[in-house]
Design a protein around this nucleic acid. Sequence first.
DNA 1: ACCGTACTCCGTCTAGAGACCGAGGCCCGC
DNA 2: GCGGGCCTCGGTCTCTAGACGGAGTACGGT
Lengths: 221, 221
Amino acid sequence: MSGMDKCKLMIVDDHDMVRAGLRTYLMLEPKFDVIAEASNGLEALRMLRNSAPEERPHLILMDLMMPEMDGVEATRMIMKEFPELKIVMLTSFLEDEKVVAAVEAGAVSYVLKTVSAEELIYALSGAVKGMPVMTADVSQALTRGLRQRTTQGADEGLTEREREVLLLIAEGQSNKEIAEELHISIKTVKTHVSNLLMKCELEDRTQLAVLAHRKGWVKTG
Amino acid sequence: MSGMDKCKLMIVDDHDMVRAGLRTYLMLEPKFDVIAEASNGLEALRMLRNSAPEERPHLILMDLMMPEMDGVEATRMIMKEFPELKIVMLTSFLEDEKVVAAVEAGAVSYVLKTVSAEELIYALSGAVKGMPVMTADVSQALTRGLRQRTTQGADEGLTEREREVLLLIAEGQSNKEIAEELHISIKTVKTHVSNLLMKCELEDRTQLAVLAHRKGWVKTG
DNA sequence: ACCGTACTCCGTCTAGAGACCGAGGCCCGC
DNA sequence: GCGGGCCTCGGTCTCTAGACGGAGTACGGT
């Protein structure tokens, strides 16, 4: 896009009031034009698919935590179908893993919701050009998260079934309970657990449960 | 306050943009007048203390999660010093424990950030009269949280030593490792673990680890 | 046809977990 | 002094967890 055009924005956040706040923020900068809003990732994706190319936004302000489809997953899918779009991730919390996941998914920038209007506009202006604008704490989280990833990177070598078992372990269930819940024998559960321990390089189920909670793989964590 | 007066509001939230959104929400209803804003509980408390009684707000819209002092703690302290104020808790997440804590601290209502402007104004109008306005999911969370509290309310019947052991279990350590770290014998560790299981009404160390993470008793959780 | 991966199940075996019993030392309040 | 709570340690016992080896099925790619 040329420097004189208006930059078309899409806001994706499940909180009405956050969207309202963003709109007032963006009113300060006339070059940004909010042309669409969605309340979750899936809705955003559908809106993009159902719109003509010239109607699509240039930039998407995407919340990280949303129902239906979260920001990381939505970013991944949107970047696959519409790689020309720039996505800025917006979030309340600064979690190392999430920052890494967002950047890996294709987000240009990662902005905390504590930003002022000026800071946000600065970050968006950079993002339009594909330039990430990160505050010091975000970039620290990014490097910290990457370092953790490489040292204990056993994130996704897990089977679907193994992930199921892991989640149940993280709920505090015994092998017997897991076997009943999944309709398999205890022996099979033990096999899965052994494989999990081997892949994650841990020693017992308690450490698996701790890992799952630390990584945020379990809901009520 | 009489029905004709304007209702003076204070907004407490660490996110600039949420405050901006709330202001635009409240512009729809002229009887509400936002007279003050704070970005955390401590700041709100200080503002109240440094203001004359006639300058103080009638109603406070308080975010739950904030730096410095969170919404529950702030509510507790504000209600102690200014019991005539009504406080509406505002949050992104529906956690049973938090709802109970908020109500116990003295909040009139508990509102999710997903509300629309109309719903928020309705809730605030009720809160002014001291009437809690809860959506179905919030009241469900409240009753669920209260039930959990009574059934497994063994939050603080734990000994100092037991808490130490619990934290190490929540780190994924074995009895032997815990014994070495605390310089006691394995037998003693087993005693503490048994007492923990009895007091928390759980069945094994993995469930203890899960409990500790769920309750947020461990840092990297 | 062959190989690789995922999922399933079986038996055996060892070490740890946890229950249940008891006991001694310590400190504090009655 | 005496009781009670906390921390400590011991023994015995049962059961689960997990390791290890083997094996069958199914599905998909080469």
